[in-house]
């Protein structure tokens, strides 16, 4: 394509928007609101999932050994657990540490309680491996695996918490995808409508173009450019707005509800927008491109 043709088509794309300004603004408004909503949902989901991940990592599974199990067998069990790719961390909890944890959790003065027990450690047979998983949904699989290992007495886990978290996490994910898909379909429909009106308004011009030998590409290109411009601007505006707002909202939430930060780590602005900007732009431009392509294919058969 010649450079002058490229610029001509680009100019025509802009002039299509100008001539059809009301409908273009309506499409732009829809894409902006859709992508703004998408951005909010995206930010919530990313933060939620990051929070879930944190919570998942705190769910520990304890693997207890048979009484008087030799040191080598304990190590062997450890190796057999560590080899699993979905295991996140594994710490050995000695009987002394188990007692210390017990005292810390159950007595007002843990040190005094420790001294009271003296050498009589009631948890001397409660050495264990404390395991966290990368994916909490694998918990049942892990428990079954660990129970079958030679020298393992019992495995303690909290199934209710793990299942709940796993279900909630995927539920939020599915609901968000559903909402975004609906929003995108609405945007495609509106862009398609705008382009159809543009084509109707310029019917005479298109008719002349065809009769004097314009190619399909040349007739369609300005409308596709129009769709891409609406999509690109429609995604850039909400992304900039969200970028500016995110830090402020985070600062507000952290300042107002301090307790949240102790159990929930928010994703940083940089981290969030590293993926949100490309995803938002691709969605916006994609919606514009798809909407205009489908419409020009339908209405501009040369």
């Amino acid at each position: 394509m010649k450079i002058s043709t490229f610029f001509y088509i680009l100019r025509q794309g802009f002039s299509n928007i100008r001539r059809n300004i009301l409908f273009s603004l309506a499409s732009l408004g829809t894409i902006i609101s859709c992508l703004f909503l998408f951005g909010i949902i995206y930010a919530v989901v990313v933060n939620f999932q990051s929070g879930m991940k944190e919570l998942e990592n705190t769910i520990t599974i304890s693997v207890f050994f048979e009484e008087d199990l030799p040191e080598e067998s304990v190590q062997l069990i450890g190796e057999q657990i560590r080899v699993l790719d979905y295991v996140n961390t594994m710490d050995y909890i000695s009987p002394e540490e188990a007692l210390k944890n017990f005292c810390e959790q159950n007595y007002d003065d843990p040190e005094a309680a420790m001294e009271a027990f003296g050498d009589e450690n009631p948890l001397r047979n409660s050495a264990s491996y404390s395991v966290t998983l990368k994916d909490v949904s694998k918990q049942a699989e892990f428990v079954a695996y660990a129970k079958d290992l030679q020298g393992v007495r019992s495995v303690k886990s909290s199934d209710v918490t793990a299942d709940g978290l796993s279900t909630l996490s995927s539920l939020v994910g599915y609901a968000s995808v559903g909402i975004v898909v609906i929003l995108m379909l609405v945007s495609i429909f509106l862009i398609s409508n705008t382009i159809t009106i543009g084509i109707t308004v310029r019917k005479e011009e298109i008719g002349i173009m065809k009769l004097i030998g314009a190619t399909n590409f040349f007739v369609r290109a300005p409308f596709i450019i129009e769709g891409i411009i609406i999509g690109a601007v429609g995604s850039a505006i909400p992304l900039v707005l969200l970028y500016e707002m995110y830090e402020k909202i985070l600062a507000y939430v952290v300042g107002r509800f301090k307790v949240i930060t102790s159990i929930f780590a928010f994703v940083s602005q940089e981290e969030l927008f590293k993926t949100m900007i490309p995803v938002g732009l691709v969605l916006g431009i994609g919606v514009g491109l798809f909407g205009s392509l489908v419409t020009t294919r339908k209405h501009l058969k040369v």
Binding site: M1, T5, A214
Partner: peptide, 10 residues
């Protein structure tokens, strides 16, 4: 316009 649509150089 007739020349532009057949991509004649400016």
């Amino acid at each position: 316009f007739a020349q532009r649509v057949i991509q004649t150089p400016a």
